[in-house]
Amino acid sequence: MRVTEQAERAAVAGLSERPLDAAAVEQSVLSPRCGAALTFTGVVRNHDPEATGTVTSLEYSAHPDAGSILDAIVDRHARGPGDPAGEVRVAAVHRIGLLDVGALALVVSVASAHRAAAFDVCRAVVEDIKAEVPIWKKQQTDAGTSHWVGLP
């Protein structure tokens, strides 16, 4: 995981093979200057329209550039305390490897002076990660089948 402090702007991004700790990710964006903090967690679910049967696990694989693309997304949305639009502190961590149903696959935390910016930025970061970061998942099912999702 990479952490930068540019002009007191928090930007934390990374890929992890270890279970994610949503509270720790949120803690990384907290600041006395920020009155709003929220965390989105993407959780492995047991169903998918493309799966044959019940999903039992996912295996996430990432392109070698995935970490730097994730960094760029977080940097693009983070703003320092002197920014005229207001400070926004951002952290995002995505799991790779084998995850069981119920495991956290993605954690995005945002802190800002006011709630509207925190909600807007959190959603934008999640959507940008889904659209831009080359991470693919292989779904395993109780029927013994597997299906790749997100391959180009």
Rank of each mutant, 00 (worst) to 15 (best):
Arg123Pro: 04
Ala105Trp: 09
Ile73Asn: 02
Ser112His: 09
Gly82Phe: 01
Val110Ala: 03
Leu38Asp: 05
Val25Lys: 01
Pro19Asn: 05
Ala37Asn: 04
Pro64Met: 10
Gly53Ile: 01
Val74Gly: 02
Phe40Asp: 01
Ala36His: 05
Ala22Arg: 05
Val88Gly: 05
Tyr60Leu: 12
Ala78Thr: 05
Asp65Gln: 12
Ala117Arg: 10
Gly35Lys: 08
Phe119Arg: 02
Ser61Val: 15
Ala118Cys: 03
Ala13Ser: 14
Asn46Glu: 13
Pro49His: 13
Arg89Trp: 00
Asp75Ile: 00
Ile69Cys: 03
Thr54Arg: 15
Val55Asp: 03
Asp21Arg: 05
Leu58Asp: 00
Ala62Ser: 11
Ala13Met: 01
Gly86Lys: 12
Thr52Met: 07
Ala22His: 11
Asp21Ser: 12
Leu70Gln: 00
Pro19Gly: 12
Leu104Ala: 15
Val90His: 10
Arg95Trp: 12
Val101Lys: 08
Ala91Tyr: 06
Thr52Ala: 13
Phe40Thr: 00
Pro84Lys: 10
Ser61Glu: 15
Pro84Val: 14
Arg33Cys: 11
Ala117Lys: 03
Ala111His: 05
Val90Glu: 00
Val44Ala: 15
Cys34Leu: 00
Ala118His: 00
Asp21Met: 09
Ser68Arg: 13
Ala24Phe: 12
Val121Tyr: 06
His114Pro: 06
Asp21Val: 05
His63Phe: 12
Ala117Asp: 14
Asp71Glu: 13
Thr41Ala: 15
Cys122Trp: 00
Val101His: 08
Ser109Ala: 15
Glu17Tyr: 02
Val44Met: 03
Arg76Gln: 15
Ala66Asp: 09
Glu17Trp: 03
Ala105Asn: 06
Pro64Tyr: 15
Ala117Met: 10
Pro19Ser: 06
Ala72Val: 04
Asp65Val: 06
Glu50Leu: 13
Gly42Ile: 10
Asp75Tyr: 00
Leu98Ile: 11
Ala23Cys: 03
Ala92Cys: 15
Thr52Leu: 12
Leu38Phe: 10
Pro32Thr: 04
Asn46Phe: 01
Leu30Asn: 01
Val74His: 00
Leu38Lys: 01
Leu70Lys: 02
